[in-house]
Simulated assay, not measured.
Amino acid sequence: MIVVKVGGSAGIDYDAVCADLAALWQEGQRFVLVHGGSGETNRVAEALGHPPRFVTSPSGYTSRFTDRKTLEIFEMVYCGKVNKGLVERFQRLGVNAVGLSGLDGRIFEGKHKDSVRVVENGKVKVLRGDHTGTVERVNVDLVKLLLGAGYLPVLTPPAASYEGVAINVDGDRAAAALAVALGADALLLLSNVPGLLRNYPDEGSLIPSIPAHDVERYLDVAQDRMKKKVLGAAEAVQGGVKRVIFGDARAGKPVSAALGGAGTVVS
């Protein structure tokens, strides 16, 4: 069992990812696909007159501040356009995919954080009205039910809070939690770079391998969104996932290449 997370930034080749996954699926390999949609969400939010707001925590992590209107735009893009676009691709390729959000069946569940501490102009502030959280529980039975019936699950944030409120959760960490819950052999984190770069954006500075016990040390190397991917990788290997690969989703056969060791391999 392999969990594949594909990001939503510019340059991602969803056609290539889906074609590669479909070919492997038809050979008998089993996957769960988790996806993002940040780039398209930003474009839609701008068009709707509610541009995205990104904030940085005191520990250096950047995330989207998700008020209620932002959450609604987020759901529109992630659960609608991007999710169904991926499902349609798989259906065309002969794979019977089912697209669900983490809210459906409480596939992803966690605590609702109504406020967030951020650093602005060198000062720490508290912003309220946030709809975010971290995946703490996975409804693995529902995912296994779909897999057992021959469906390819295509999953996306948001998650459900324990009170049933939709919450924005980080897709990489959600995928890591899913990989742990499924006892996956590998977690692939595919984005628009070839892997973890020591000197971003220099693609010649790719770090080819990281020992599993040492992965958290690379948080200082990671830039921006890659920090969450490294954190997710650390959580996955600590939970028993044997391999985590940071791979390139821009062209070719992204899944096969990552499984073959292309990118940054944490093992």
Rank of each mutant, 00 (worst) to 15 (best):
L187I: 09
G102L: 05
E72D: 15
G263F: 03
E75Y: 10
Q223W: 15
F246W: 12
V193H: 02
E27M: 07
V34K: 03
V165L: 10
L86N: 03
S256D: 01
G164K: 06
A45D: 05
Q238F: 06
L189G: 12
V95L: 06
P51L: 01
E216Y: 12
R43M: 09
A212V: 07
I207W: 06
F54V: 00
T132I: 13
S63G: 10
A258E: 07
L152K: 11
A19H: 03
V244G: 11
R30N: 07
I73R: 04
Y78F: 15
I210R: 09
D130H: 08
M1C: 01
Q238C: 08
A181S: 09
D15L: 02
T156F: 02
V241K: 04
N42Q: 06
S38A: 10
S115V: 03
N96A: 10
N192Y: 10
G263H: 09
K144C: 09
T132F: 06
R217S: 12
K125M: 11
A258D: 06
G49M: 05
A97M: 08
V34H: 05
S267N: 14
G263M: 05
L48K: 09
M1K: 06
L206W: 04
C79W: 03
Y14W: 13
F54M: 00
S115W: 06
L231W: 15
G80L: 08
R137L: 10
D114W: 15
V244T: 12
T70F: 01
G39A: 12
I12L: 12
L155E: 08
Q26W: 03
A16K: 01
A160E: 04
M226E: 07
L103W: 15
V98I: 15
I2W: 04
L219G: 09
R225W: 15
L196C: 08
R117P: 04
V118F: 01
K227W: 08
D248K: 00
V32W: 03
A179W: 13
V165A: 05
L187P: 11
A233T: 12
Q238I: 07
R68T: 10
K123L: 12
R117L: 06
E27A: 15
A174M: 04
G8H: 00
A234P: 14
V230N: 06
R250N: 01
I107G: 08
P194Y: 10
V44N: 00
A222H: 10
A212S: 14
E75I: 14
Q91A: 13
N96L: 12
D170F: 06
S59A: 13
A159M: 09
D220I: 10
G11Y: 07
P208W: 07
A22W: 00
P157F: 05
V143M: 00
G94T: 09
L86W: 04
H131K: 07
D170G: 02
G99P: 13
G164I: 00
T156S: 14
K123S: 12
T66A: 07
P52D: 03
E120L: 12
Y61T: 10
L33D: 09
R250V: 00
L188I: 13
W25R: 01
V193F: 02
L187R: 12
A233Y: 11
G102S: 08
K84C: 02
V32M: 04
E163I: 03
P158R: 10
T56R: 15
Q238D: 13
R225K: 15
G80C: 11
G39P: 01
L86F: 05
L147Y: 09
T70E: 04
R137A: 14
N192H: 13
